[in-house]
Write a protein that binds this DNA or RNA. Structure first.
Length: 993
RNA sequence: GCCCGGGUGGCGGAAUGGCAGACGCUCAGGACUUAAAAUCCUGUGACCGUUUUCGGUCGUGCGGGUUCGACUCCCGCCCCGGGCACCA
């Protein structure tokens, strides 16, 4: 037999699985389903890195294991292929993004197939395929045609809203009655209810990318992709009303098997706060503010509006700023430099605020602001209090206005200090006096009607008072904002709707889908706010025929001379990359369906019971965005009756990041004298050294001299306590750490290389053996070598090589055979004994591997199989049935070697694939030892051990322990006060002293 | 600043109230070999005594506590990683 050679067996079985559709999933109504899902990759130009196979191997193990346990397993893969990198690469190389994308997909598919994942490739989806994005557009139209019924907490068809308005059972917001409105007015009114709507709003405009970004895509004032500066700019945008679903998305988390930390991240993102809406009166009407501390209302000594608040919008009718400063206005309140009138001061401040990015606002901890010249009345103390504007109040949260309680809020306190505003303490801390501002809970003081009440009760009582006087009410507020859903890009889904000349919008009729991206040779950003699609003039301007209800029409594109056709312009924005990934897991279920995004019966089977995807594994970078957006869409589809449950992903695991190999860095000064890391400034930079390799450059802390750092090979490194030190001189400490893999660092590990050197099975095994799935772990080629050796040993034990004959024997009619050869009586006896001795370890291995896969503890399952393999190594023979069982256990982890060994052993008796063989059963009774080496402690410290039968009684064990010379010497004649016996675990003897 | 997660040999890690360090890597010694590779065997937390055998002490970031018994539970602190960050 040839030695273990993954290069020869792996491609063979990969082709076999593909050609025989071994892992094809079909709906079988009376079989239990198991949906095992990976986060599908963005097919980048770089190809796969070792981070991808981590989660993919974990799900593949589960998928293969569940199949063996009799489940009907759905395990698909696809491509999240729209997106900026492909578009940018296409611009740079002057190719079409679809060409680039298809090339990358080919490469990714090849790479994934080379790892031997058991995907059903017939279900592959590609978000850029019109047959796919036709349904992305369709779902968008579902959102467009849905409104959120707050009372019912549920999305409903817009047609039902129209019916209710028409019947008068629901009153539209605003002054005018429904049946007195024109069709255009009705359409505009309905737009205010739709889950997809347009908004002229300040957005995050990134000039370098030529697009608008969602808040989530902006990090510290720079784009998440590329790190380019982002500025604020008003623009008409499509928004999705995710805020309407805030409560549902929050409550839905409770029933999910997600890690608590992940749920917490989503909860924080949604950001529910309970408090009160309070109305303050001014001479020009009321101002509503939201507060979480209604108990501090008596301490509200001024109001602050966001600079963008409608009351101070100079262009608006709602603006009511006085012409002149009230008498006695301090100069400091009039802006810098002080303006002659409120309008001028406000205008100047708004200009500054608008120009400042989020980041600049955050960096500046100094509070700024301007007095509006307006006064309000505190509704409970009836004090006249001034109204300011300041950019520390955000227009997007609450009402964009706050009541300021400087005594009990740090921000208000800072502002009050700066503008010399009164600070009124209304909460007293329990216990010691606390300095102001005091933000904690305590007891209300100086607040008639709630004096003496603890904070929690004071809040409730104040809400009651406000409600009784109709000047406020309890209110729950959410931090989450509506989702900015349009991008000024070419490589995304076009919006399936047109703009009419009256400024309203009409969706395309379903039969108009897909709306294809126009073929364009020039899809570069325009350098203006116009998206690239504005250049496709033929596509942009169309004639449409409207049909359906006049207040809710649909459009069909027609020839220009069609009677009744009207001019329209297509939407020029495209959807963000999230759109396609919001629902791909549904399309896998029925990928070729031309009439539905997914057949309802098929959806009910795979997503119905148990509800949702059974296991979803992916990176933590999607903890909020993808997972929240996806849940939102799924909730809407659920409300509209298109899916059978509200939550798409019942169980979710985040795999941990894989770092590069551990690196040691040592520093030396210009003369080559080694310097300990403690004496090096940690702010170092990288430069190319004379040998072409990169060299770190930093400064010595003690004298500022330039020092150079370079990598130190492991063999020159020693450990002393926490520190890595130079072997040659233990006083020289080194910098030791693993880094995130990156091209610039040159520590990226390519799975193709690992497969070439060790094979896919070793790659899979090592990915799982490194440590717990969810943990951050450093890569190690030596570790890959370790699991490769394990597979080599397994091969030698069972199959054998020219140097190492196989240990495989089998029993027929009570006689052992080695191959076709009958074994001698003596050999046969040995084989029988060894077979007996391996029985218990084998059952324990089955149990351990089974339970460990169930709890996704793959590293420990692998070590259990290594132990069993080591045991085989100590025997001369291994029974064929046992070998088959063992190989069945390793199949989910290392499917190629398992398939090969299986077929070699079984020969003609083999099933088409080992994956069709059922999962081995274990017997708990066989697992238990019949005698045990029981540890005995004296006062909690190990004193010795006694060998007793597993059936031994407690009193017998105690007797044995007393009789043991080593243990009794520890007792030193002292009386045993009591003993604690934990069955089959240990015995503890408690003595005096 | 707030909220999570983590800290165990030279390294990755195992043990979730009951024998700390499974399994793997590394390193050292040995066997096989003309030699090397591969493979196999033995050892590998620290310190001390004995210097084969064997025995003892310490040891899971630091300090305290609960318990017959703590890596594991509780309190306080230190360090690392992640998330959020003027959200009223």
């Amino acid at each position: 037999m040839p030695a273990y050679n993954p290069a020869s067996i792996e491609p063979k079985w990969q082709n076999f699985w593909l050609e025989n559709r071994t892992f094809k999933a079909e709906m079988v109504v009376d079989r239990p389903k198991c949906y095992v899902l990976d986060m599908f990759p963005y097919p980048s130009g770089e190809g796969l890195h070792v981070g991808h196979p981590e989660g993919y191997t974990a799900t593949d193990i589960v998928a293969r294991y569940k199949r063996a346990r009799g489940f009907n397993v759905m395990h698909p893969m696809g491509w999240d292929a729209f997106g900026l990198p492909a578009e940018q690469y296409a611009i740079k190389t002057d190719t079409h993004p679809s060409v680039v994308t298809q090339k990358n997909i080919e490469r990714f598919r090849k790479q994934l197939q080379a790892i031997g994942f058991s995907y059903d490739w017939s279900r592959e989806v590609d978000t850029t395929n019109p047959k796919y994005y036709r349904w992305t557009q369709w779902i968008f139209l579902q959102l467009y045609n849905t409104w959120f019924d707050v009372g019912a907490q549920r999305g409903r068809p817009i047609s039902e809203l129209i019916d209710e308005f028409a019947a008068g059972t629901r009153m539209p917001e605003g002054s005018k009655a429904w049946n007195q409105m024109s069709d255009g007015e009705k359409r505009r009114l309905l737009e205010g209810y739709r889950l997809a709507y347009q908004l002229e709003a300040p957005v995050n405009w990134c000039p370098a990318l030529g697009t608008v970004l969602a808040n989530e895509e902006v990090i510290d004032g720079r784009s998440e992709v590329g790190g380019f500066p982002v500025e604020r700019r008003p623009m008409r945008q499509w928004m999705l009303r995710i805020t309407a679903y805030a409560r549902r998305l929050l409550d839905g988390l409770d029933g999910l098997e997600w890690s608590e930390s992940l749920k917490l991240m989503q909860r924080n993102w949604i950001g529910q706060s309970e408090g009160a809406m309070v109305q303050f009166q001014t001479d020009d009407g009321p101002i509503d503010v939201f507060t979480t501390r209604p108990d501090t209302l008596f301490g509200a000594t001024y109001l602050v509006l966001a600079p963008e608040h409608p009351l101070v919008n100079l262009a608006s009718k709602t603006c009511c700023l006085p012409a002149a400063w009230p008498a006695g206005t301090p100069a400091a309140w009039m802006g810098t430099p002080a303006a002659g009138a409120p309008r001028a001061a406000i205008a100047a401040y708004q200009g500054i605020a608008a120009a400042r990015s989020e980041r600049q606002r955050q960096e500046d901890v100094q509070k700024t602001g301007v007095f509006t010249g307006l006064m309000a009345t505190n509704p409970v103390s009836h004090d006249r209090i001034p109204i300011f504007i300041s950019d520390y109040v955000l227009i997007g949260y609450g009402t964009g206005a706050i009541m300021a309680v400087p005594a009990h809020d740090q921000r208000d306190f800072d502002f009050a200090r700066k503008f010399a505003l009164p600070v009124r303490q209304v909460v007293k801390a329990n216990g010691a006096e606390q300095p102001l501002p005091f933000e904690g809970s305590g007891v209300a003081v100086d607040s008639p009607a709630i004096n003496g009440l603890p904070t929690a009760e004071a809040k409730a009582e104040m809400c009651r008072l406000l409600e009784a006087q109709k000047i406020g009410r309890r209110q729950v507020s959410y931090r989450i904002r509506d989702w900015l859903f349009s991008r000024q890009r070419y490589w995304g889904e076009p919006f399936p709707l047109v703009h009419l000349q009256d400024g309203t919008t009409a969706p395309l009729a379903d039969d108009q889908l897909p709306l294809l991206l126009p073929e364009m040779s020039d899809f570069k950003p325009t350098q203006t706010i116009d998206p690239p699609l504005s250049k496709a003039a033929d596509w942009r301007d169309v004639m449409v025929l409207l049909s359906g209800a006049a207040e809710d029409p649909v459009a069909r594109v027609v020839a220009a001379d069609t009677p009744g056709a009207v001019r329209a312009r297509r939407e020029l924005n495209t959807m963000p990359q999230w759109a396609g990934s919001c629902w791909y897991y549904l399309r896998y279920l029925d990928p070729l369906n031309q009439d539905h995004f997914c057949d309802p019966q098929i959806e009910r089977y795979w997503m119905g019971t148990p509800s949702g995807v059974d296991l979803y594994v992916g990176g933590a970078e999607h903890a909020v965005l993808h997972l929240l957006y996806s849940r939102f869409w799924h909730h809407v589809l659920y409300d509209r009756g298109h899916v059978s449950g509200a939550e798409p992903f019942r169980k979710l695991i985040n795999q941990g990041l894989i770092l590069g190999e551990s690196e040691y860095t040592g520093f030396a000064d210009a003369s080559g004298c080694a310097i300990s890391i403690d004496d090096v400034d940690p702010q170092w930079s990288t430069q190319a050294g004379p040998d072409g390799k990169s060299l770190l450059v930093s400064r010595r802390r003690s004298d500022g001299a330039v020092v150079y750092g370079r990598a130190v090979e492991t063999q020159y490194v020693d450990r002393r306590g926490d520190a890595a030190v130079l072997k040659a001189d233990n006083n020289i400490r080194l910098d030791a750490r693993s880094f995130k893999m990156s091209k610039s660092r040159g520590n990226v590990v390519n799975p193709d290389d690992v497969i070439q050197d060790y094979g896919a099975d070793s790659l899979r095994l090592f990915e799982m053996f490194m440590g717990p799935l969810e943990q951050v772990k450093p890569w190690s080629m030596a570790g890959v070598e370790g699991v490769y050796r394990f597979l080599g040993r397994l091969w030698r034990h069972i199959i054998g090589t020219p140097e190492f004959p196989s240990r495989l024997v089998h029993k027929k009619n009570g006689i052992y055979y080695r191959g076709p050869t009958k074994m001698s009586v003596e050999e046969s006896q040995i084989a029988e004994q060894e077979s007996q001795s391996l029985l218990r370890p084998l059952h324990r291995t089955i149990r351990k591997v089974t339970l460990d896969i169930d709890r996704l503890s793959f590293n420990t399952a692998i070590s259990a199989m290594m132990e069993f393999n080591n045991l085989i190594g100590k025997t001369r023979t291994v029974d064929q049935d046992m070998a088959l069982t063992f190989v069945r256990l390793i199949e989910p982890f290392a499917p190629h070697i398992a398939e090969e060994v299986y077929h070699q052993i079984r020969g003609d008796g083999a099933l088409a694939s080992i994956s069709a063989e059922p999962w081995p059963q274990y017997d708990d009774a066989v697992c238990e030892e019949d005698s045990m080496d029981l540890p005995v402690q004296v006062n909690g410290k190990l004193a010795g051990r006694v060998v007793v039968s597993a059936l031994a009684t407690e009193s017998y064990i105690l007797e044995q322990a007393r009789a043991d010379p080593q243990i009794s010497s520890r007792l030193a004649g002292r009386e045993i006060k009591k003993h604690v016996y934990i069955k089959n675990r240990m015995l503890n003897l408690v003595v005096q002293g």
